[in-house]
Write a protein that binds this DNA or RNA. Sequence first.
DNA 1: CCAGCTGATGTCAGTTACTGTCATCACCCT
DNA 2: AGGGTGATGACAGTAACTGACATCAGCTGG
Lengths: 188, 188
Amino acid sequence: MGRWEPNARGRLEKAALELYSERGYDQTTVAEIAERAGLTERTFFRHFADKREVLFGGQDSLRELIVTTLASAPGSTAPIEVVGAGIRAAGATLQEYQDRVRQRQAVIAANAELQERELIKLATLATAIAAALRQRGVTDPAAGLAGQAGVAVFRIAFERWISQPGGRDLPQLIQESLDELRAVTAGG
Amino acid sequence: MGRWEPNARGRLEKAALELYSERGYDQTTVAEIAERAGLTERTFFRHFADKREVLFGGQDSLRELIVTTLASAPGSTAPIEVVGAGIRAAGATLQEYQDRVRQRQAVIAANAELQERELIKLATLATAIAAALRQRGVTDPAAGLAGQAGVAVFRIAFERWISQPGGRDLPQLIQESLDELRAVTAGG
DNA sequence: CCAGCTGATGTCAGTTACTGTCATCACCCT
DNA sequence: AGGGTGATGACAGTAACTGACATCAGCTGG
């Protein structure tokens, strides 16, 4: 047995999600999170840059999944379809952790600071998608627009998925939203 | 002469922009901003919800301009074109205050917290555009997508406008970005 | 012309997020 | 066995933000 209980980071994430759900983000102090995890406040800040970041640990791996999917698509595929494949892959993964994802999203929806953090994560994702497209030879501003459009499609689909209790298939909702975007932008 | 110098709010905005530019957002305290404006820290927080908000005073009027433009477009115009007209109007207004806008954007670009605030303002704008479209009879999810797409187009165009010292015509850049989005989404 | 109300500001104490610094101590390596 | 390493604790300090109360110029009704 080690000197400390293992997985301090995971315990902090779990304690934070619980407390944010139970009494709200504002009504939770970092000291309380650390205490529930059997650690001190100082240690919390060694694992997470701030009180918000503890909810966003999975973002990096999801972004990697999307970028990897983009990179491995056949060279002939149209950019917007490549992006579609990437975010459908992310949607499928999210669906596997449906309960945790929904709980997390309820916490975020209740607090403006957390929404800000979520938005900058999505903006980073859009940038990463654009970079991956440029890697495939897509030029600007098309690459940047496709990245932003992809994230917009994801957000709309995710929102619909969250709002339905039973939950339709998320990748399918993403595909439908992408088709809708095509229809909307085709006008004029 | 009144008991206090007039336009406390404006003085705080001016002092904040100056200090954020001179030494950076992080290296500026609210007490310093208040002091330069001839006020106290407590008064700063009576005018602005937090240290970030002092940079985002003009957002409301810009959003109103866009929504008003949307509402007054001919009923037959396609949704995406209506949105285009709205954000071109906003672009024209921003261009009038080019110097201040560029200075402000340089400050925001240098700090992640400020970028978060900017993003949530843009998300609010996307929501307002979607609501205005629904008012015109556009159904979901097209309204939501058009709102997000409009903001994406604006961001790309604004970014290009900022990055060019001389500065091309912003409404024209917006139109070009919208055309690009059409081209990108038409693929696949 | 005065008494009281109003509204913007000042003052002050308090909470909490976040940081810097140094101490501790099980584990590992040689 | 002895020294290095890395995660943690302890503690002091800064600054954002809040609540409560005091102040006082100007307006308003009588």
